[in-house]
C-alpha cells in the first residue's frame, strides 16, 4: 500500500502555487462502515491540510487506508448534491463542510443518511426520492403558445426559480421527522423536496394544469401528504442552497389548500410572519 497522501494540494506546473503543509494536523475520524447486514464505526487518524473539507478527508482515507470505502460524490463544489451524509449527527454536504468548523481535537463522525436504507458504508439507497418524483404530475404547457412565444415577467418567475435552485441532495428528505423515524409514512408522504416541486409548478406563471382539470393545490394535500407536515422548519435549516422551503413553498401550499380542506396548521402558519423570497 502506498503512503502517498497528497491527493490534493501540491503545486501545479501552470502557475506555480504551493501552500501545502501550512497548518497540517492529524484529525480523528469515525466513519460508519458496513452494509445492509449491519456495520459499525471505524476509527481513522488522517492528515488534514489548510482549507480542506470533510470530503477531502474521506478521499484521503480512501486513497491511503481503506480503498474500498464507499462514498458518493461528483462535483465537490456544492452544485450536484451527491455527497450528502450526517456529520456529527447533522445532515450536510461533505464537500461544503470545512474542517475549520471543528476543533482540532474533536472527533469527526461521519454516518450515512439515516432516513434511507444503507447500501454500503456512506452510500444509501435514495430510490424513495425518485419514486416520489414520478408521482408529481409534470409541467403542462399552455395550448395556445408555441416555442418562443412564452412571455413571463421576472417578478412572476422569481418564486418558482427559488425552488428550482434545489440540487436534490435530499438532506431535507433525510431530516424531515415525518419519515426520518417513521418508515410507515413513506407511502403517503412525498417529503419537503417534492411538496416544494408541487408548489413550484403551482406558482409557474404558465403552467396549464388547471385547464386539464388538475388541481395541484388539492393534490398536495390529498395525494402527497402535505397534512403530515407540521412546519418545524427542519428542512429549511439543512438546505445547503438556503431555500426557504417551509415559508415560501409549504406554508403557501397549505394556505391554498385551506379553501378545500380544513388544516389546523394553517392557522399557525398564518401567525408566522413570512420572510421575503430574496
Amino acid at each position: 500500500m502506498s503512503t502517498t497522501t497528497s491527493g490534493t494540494g501540491s503545486s501545479a506546473a501552470a502557475d506555480g502555487g504551493g501552500d501545502e503543509g501550512s497548518g497540517a494536523y492529524d484529525a480523528r475520524f469515525r466513519v460508519w462502515r458496513g452494509d445492509v447486514e449491519g456495520g459499525d464505526l471505524e476509527d481513522f487518524t488522517v492528515q488534514v491540510n489548510d482549507g480542506e473539507v470533510v470530503l477531502d478527508i474521506i478521499h484521503r482515507i480512501q486513497a491511503t487506508q481503506a480503498p474500498d470505502l464507499a462514498v458518493r460524490w461528483n462535483c465537490k463544489a456544492g452544485k450536484c448534491g451527491s455527497c450528502s451524509a450526517e456529520i456529527n449527527g447533522r445532515p450536510r454536504l461533505m464537500c461544503m463542510t470545512r474542517m475549520s468548523v471543528f476543533a482540532r481535537d474533536e472527533v469527526v463522525t461521519v454516518t450515512p443518511l439515516r432516513a434511507f436504507p444503507v447500501v454500503r458504508d456512506l452510500v444509501t439507497d435514495v430510490g424513495f426520492n425518485y419514486t416520489k418524483a414520478r408521482e408529481v404530475p409534470s409541467f403542462v404547457p399552455p395550448k395556445d403558445l408555441g416555442p418562443g412565444e412564452y412571455r413571463m415577467m421576472q417578478e412572476d418567475v422569481d418564486r418558482s426559480q427559488e425552488f428550482r435552485k434545489c440540487i436534490e441532495c435530499f438532506l431535507c428528505q433525510d431530516t424531515c421527522h415525518v419519515v426520518r423515524d417513521h418508515e410507515e409514512n413513506k407511502t403517503a408522504f412525498a417529503g419537503p423536496r417534492f411538496l416544494m416541486r408541487v408548489a413550484e409548478l403551482d406558482m409557474h406563471p404558465l403552467d396549464a394544469a388547471a385547464a386539464t382539470g388538475l388541481d395541484r393545490k388539492a393534490t398536495a394535500q390529498e395525494e402527497h401528504g402535505l397534512g403530515y407536515c407540521n412546519i418545524t422548519k427542519c428542512c429549511t435549516e439543512v438546505c445547503p442552497e438556503g431555500i426557504h422551503i417551509t415559508d415560501n413553498a409549504l406554508i403557501p401550499l397549505k394556505e391554498r389548500a385551506v379553501d378545500r380542506k380544513y388544516d389546523p396548521l394553517v392557522w399557525l402558519g398564518n401567525k408566522i410572519r413570512r420572510r421575503p423570497t430574496s
Partner: peptide, 22 residues
C-alpha cells in the same frame, strides 16, 4: 440553438427574463 432553447421552456424551464418578458 434558438429552437433548442425555446423548446426547454415548453418543458418547464424558467430562464431569467428581459423587461418585456422574453
Amino acid at each position: 440553438a434558438p429552437d433548442r432553447v425555446w423548446e426547454l421552456e415548453t418543458w418547464g424551464a424558467l430562464f431569467d427574463r428581459t423587461k418585456d418578458g422574453r
